[in-house]
Each structure stands twice: as structure tokens, then as C-alpha cells.
């Protein structure tokens, strides 16, 4: 029986990385040479939200209490939260819909598996590609924030790795979830989790609005970690809870990666 040896085959590249995973990133670069507009368009979505919600609606809202309780303009309040949400959404879209399509329909991975690449290389490569895209969007968005004069704290530089951490956490868990999906219908479940999280994790208004019990629950959601982390960096009021946020997202990412490498083996190596 070969069952027990399979994890051994997977574990080393997951832990130490394999250069072959880079080939998958190269593939995606080729693909997007044709579809660059899709890449560019991903940058505009959070920008549109920032202009509409931050400025259009922000004019009606005025100031709100920010990290540490000081009153801050609504644009500054909502911009980092939109960045966190778009990091989450970008990672989830890539790791669920697109990944499922490649896994089940396009058979891209089946062809790749008849080369020396392993399942772990595929998982790592897809993940890496998602992070590269995420980094591009993040830098672009922060550039816009600076140009519009929202958030000028030196901590702002740290939002780039922090946003990548959000992409990593959600991307890995998203891929793990996708490996359990059987039909497109199952994706409703993902939406069922993502949309409420997007709307209620302190993205658009302070979590202090909620009663204590509810607020505590909200503060445990993964998106809240990202929102609060980015917001404190953008405003420049960074407390010890930032360490908790970082640890939370790291654990999430590695747990997801662990599950996905086990599951993909079973799905692809039938």
C-alpha cells in the first residue's frame, strides 16, 4: 500500500519550497500577457469603492472614531478596510472560482502533473501567483491613498506586507475549501461567509457600534484581523493587538496550505 508514503512525497516541498513552483507562476504570466486587462481591472475595483464610499458617502458621514478612539475622517477610516477587503476578495476569487475551474474543467493541472511538477508545486505556484497579483494591487492602492492625501503615516509602508498576509491567509484557506467543492453550487457557501464578513467586520463603521457580545464575535473573524491591522498602520496608531492579528493570519495560511496539499493529492492522483 502506498497511502502512508504520499504525505512524505508532499511534505518536503511544502516545508522547504520547490523551484519548480516558479514554472507555474511563469505560466500565469504568459496567460495574462493576453489578458492583461483583467489584471488592470482588478486595481480599479477597490479604487471605485474608495471614491464612492470614501468620498461620495463619506461626505455624508463626516468623522468617525478611529483606532485609539481619536476622531478621523471617514476616508481614512474606510480606505485601509477596503484594501483589506479587496485583498481578501482577490485571494478568494483566485483560490475558489478560478482554482476550481482549472482543477475540474480545464484539466490544466492534470497536464502539468505528467511533468516532473508535483501537486505541492502546483499549490505553491498558484499561491505565489496570487501573492504577486495582490502585491501589485496593494502598491497601486496605497499610491492612490497617498496621492489623495489619505493616510500619511510612515507605518503605511508596512501595509504592503500586511495586505499580502491577508491574501496568504484567505488564499490558502480558500484553496483548501475549494478542494472539498463538488459543484458550482457549493460556492454559495463561500459567498455566504465572505459577504457578511465584508459587511460586518468593522469595514464600513466602527465595531464599537455593536453590543459587547456581538463585538467580541466580530473581533474573532479573520477579516477583522486584516481590517484592524491595516487601519492601525494607516492611521499610525499601532498597539500590541497587531501581533495577534499577524499571528492569526499566519496560522490560517499555513493551516490552509497543509490541508490543500493533502487534499489535492487525493483529488489529482486518483
Amino acid at each position: 500500500m502506498t497511502g502512508p508514503t504520499l504525505p512524505l512525497r508532499v511534505a518536503p516541498p511544502i516545508m522547504f519550497g520547490s523551484r519548480r513552483a516558479l514554472r507555474l507562476i511563469e505560466r500565469n504570466l504568459y496567460v495574462y500577457r493576453h489578458g492583461w486587462i483583467v489584471i488592470v481591472s482588478g486595481f480599479f475595483e477597490p479604487l471605485f469603492y474608495l471614491l464612492s464610499i470614501g468620498f461620495g458617502l463619506g461626505a455624508l458621514v463626516g468623522n468617525v472614531p478611529g483606532p485609539g478612539g481619536a476622531s478621523i475622517p471617514y476616508q481614512l477610516f474606510v480606505a485601509p478596510a477596503l484594501l483589506a477587503s479587496s485583498s481578501m476578495n482577490g485571494a478568494i476569487t483566485e483560490a475558489t472560482f478560478n482554482f476550481f475551474f482549472k482543477l475540474r474543467y480545464q484539466k490544466t493541472f492534470d497536464a502539468i502533473l505528467s511533468t516532473p511538477l508535483s501537486v505541492a508545486d502546483i499549490a505553491l505556484g498558484e499561491m505565489g501567483w496570487g501573492l504577486i497579483r495582490g502585491a501589485l494591487y496593494t502598491v497601486g492602492f496605497i499610491g492612490v491613498m497617498v496621492v489623495l492625501g489619505i493616510g500619511v503615516s510612515p507605518w503605511l509602508l508596512l501595509t504592503v506586507p500586511a495586505a499580502l498576509l491577508i491574501s496568504f491567509g484567505f488564499g490558502a484557506v480558500g484553496m483548501a475549501a475549494t478542494s472539498f467543492m463538488r459543484t458550482w453550487q457549493d460556492f454559495d457557501l463561500i459567498q455566504l461567509i465572505i459577504l457578511p464578513m465584508f459587511l460586518f467586520s468593522g469595514t464600513f463603521y466602527p465595531v464599537e457600534t455593536y453590543p459587547d457580545g456581538l463585538r467580541f464575535i466580530v473581533q474573532l473573524t479573520p477579516l477583522y484581523q486584516g481590517v484592524d491591522l491595516l487601519r492601525s498602520l494607516a492611521v499610525g496608531v499601532v498597539g500590541p493587538e497587531a501581533i495577534f492579528h499577524v499571528a492569526y493570519l499566519l496560522v490560517m495560511g499555513f493551516a490552509g496550505l497543509f490541508v490543500v496539499s493533502r487534499r489535492l493529492d487525493r483529488l489529482l492522483l486518483k
Binding site: L60, V61, G62
Partner: peptide
Amino acid sequence: IGLGGYVDRSG
């Protein structure tokens, strides 16, 4: 309701 509370207070 959530964000609306802040809007109603100011705008």
C-alpha cells in the same frame, strides 16, 4: 442601519 447611524448623526 450600521453605517446609516453615523450618516443620520451628521449628514
